[in-house]
Computed example of a mutant assay.
Amino acid sequence: MRIGELARRAGVTTKAARYYESLGLLTPGRLANGYRDYDEHDVRLAREIRALSGLGIPVERTRPFLDCLAVGHRHADDCPASLAGYRQAIDELSQRIAGLTARRTALIAQLQEAAHRNSRVSPVPPADEGAHPMSDVPMNDYLSLPADLPVPEDDGATAHLPGTKLPPLELRTTGDTTVRLDALGPGRTVLYVYPLTGRPGTDLPEGWDTIPGARGCTPEACGFRDHYQELLDAGAVRVFGLSSQDTDYQREVVERLHLPFDMLSDPTRSLARALDLPTFEVSGLTLYKRLTLLLRDGVIEHVFYPVFPPNEHAAQVLTWLRDAPH
């Protein structure tokens, strides 16, 4: 058969078949006109080379397997030389894995150092050698969002809020002051309420990414940071984030992300009780559902709920402020 037929039946390219022949792995006969003539044995060899290459064994090192077939064995790895070829490939992979693991550990350490450079919280040491090599990847990657993140539905839980007066609640800020919500003063305040920010080296609650509206607190905070001056230019007098996390935890986030505004801590969820705000349960925690309140002169003027996607939400608030009457 011609080389094109061989390539088709063996599942390789004609270029690959020519390469196999150049290494002496295929030795076709010659027709009277000088054309190469491949047979069923060549097809078998080409298939074997392709399969071994898929396992990571270089084409150049497949000869012991092909020789095993040539002497009549049913399988190419029935011979001791073939088993030695497997072991060599495994040893090389182990060395590569060890090298990659060392590089990955160094990268994790660099990430931790960079993430906590301006924080009062000490970095968490990289996982030890006994840890699963991928065990801490998700907990370190809070700035990106999965493509299949579930979209929260509007369950009507905030329909009663527009026009509601703010309660006389006093909450602690990350700036070591307190803020009384009904006494914020004139002008608009952006108060975005979020469930829980992640921290490098700290696990999120189990199943976090599967809860609609849960994932994305850090990208949301970064969005308000990046649009902060634009929000003020568009008419906001102040911006706050609010969650049920304690002030020290929030302060680490403010410092690490270089947020130009304070967070408000509401560990007892007093605002949720006063305004009947939506919450959810996960891993024994009761957390706020993500929403944003536009406050003006002691009254809730507008509510964003549900919020999605969180990384674009600050831009959504900015658009609303620019279009709202002043």
Results as ranks from 00 to 15, higher is better:
136 D>C: 10
142 Y>K: 05
154 D>K: 06
182 D>H: 02
155 D>I: 06
166 L>I: 03
156 G>E: 06
138 P>S: 07
137 V>R: 07
122 S>N: 13
118 N>W: 14
184 L>P: 09
176 D>M: 13
188 R>K: 12
118 N>C: 10
164 T>G: 03
190 V>G: 00
174 T>D: 06
130 G>H: 12
169 L>C: 02
120 R>W: 08
123 P>R: 02
148 D>L: 06
159 A>F: 01
125 P>C: 08
152 P>D: 03
186 P>F: 06
178 T>L: 08
158 T>A: 15
171 L>M: 12
131 A>C: 08
125 P>G: 07
158 T>H: 02
120 R>H: 11
179 V>H: 04
171 L>H: 08
129 E>N: 12
164 T>W: 01
163 G>K: 03
190 V>Q: 00
172 R>E: 12
146 P>R: 05
133 P>Q: 04
144 S>M: 10
177 T>W: 05
186 P>W: 00
133 P>I: 12
152 P>Q: 07
185 G>Q: 13
187 G>D: 06
133 P>R: 12
173 T>P: 01
165 K>I: 00
179 V>L: 14
167 P>S: 03
129 E>I: 09
130 G>Y: 04
124 V>A: 10
143 L>H: 03
142 Y>V: 01
176 D>P: 01
122 S>A: 15
177 T>G: 14
178 T>N: 13
127 A>E: 12
187 G>E: 01
154 D>F: 06
156 G>V: 07
140 N>L: 15
146 P>I: 03
183 A>E: 12
181 L>F: 00
136 D>T: 15
149 L>E: 00
119 S>P: 09
129 E>P: 05
125 P>D: 00
165 K>Q: 14
183 A>W: 03
152 P>R: 05
165 K>C: 13
148 D>H: 09
175 G>R: 15
129 E>L: 11
123 P>E: 00
175 G>I: 14
173 T>A: 10
188 R>G: 02
176 D>Q: 15
176 D>S: 15
173 T>Y: 05
181 L>V: 00
183 A>Y: 08
126 P>M: 11
132 H>L: 10
183 A>S: 14
118 N>P: 06
157 A>S: 15
184 L>Q: 12
125 P>E: 02
125 P>L: 04
154 D>L: 08
168 P>R: 07
164 T>H: 05
185 G>L: 12
169 L>K: 00
186 P>N: 07
145 L>W: 04
132 H>S: 14
161 L>W: 04
180 R>D: 07
171 L>F: 13
169 L>D: 01
150 P>Y: 04
140 N>Q: 14
177 T>A: 15
169 L>Y: 01
187 G>V: 06
124 V>C: 03
163 G>R: 02
190 V>C: 03
124 V>W: 02
149 L>P: 01
174 T>V: 12
158 T>L: 14
190 V>N: 00
165 K>M: 11
159 A>I: 08
188 R>M: 04
121 V>Y: 06
126 P>G: 08
162 P>R: 13
141 D>V: 10
136 D>R: 15
164 T>R: 10
154 D>S: 03
135 S>Q: 09
119 S>C: 15
149 L>T: 00
134 M>C: 11
168 P>Y: 08
127 A>Q: 12
148 D>E: 08
173 T>M: 11
186 P>D: 14
131 A>H: 06
150 P>C: 09
138 P>A: 12
149 L>Q: 04
158 T>E: 05
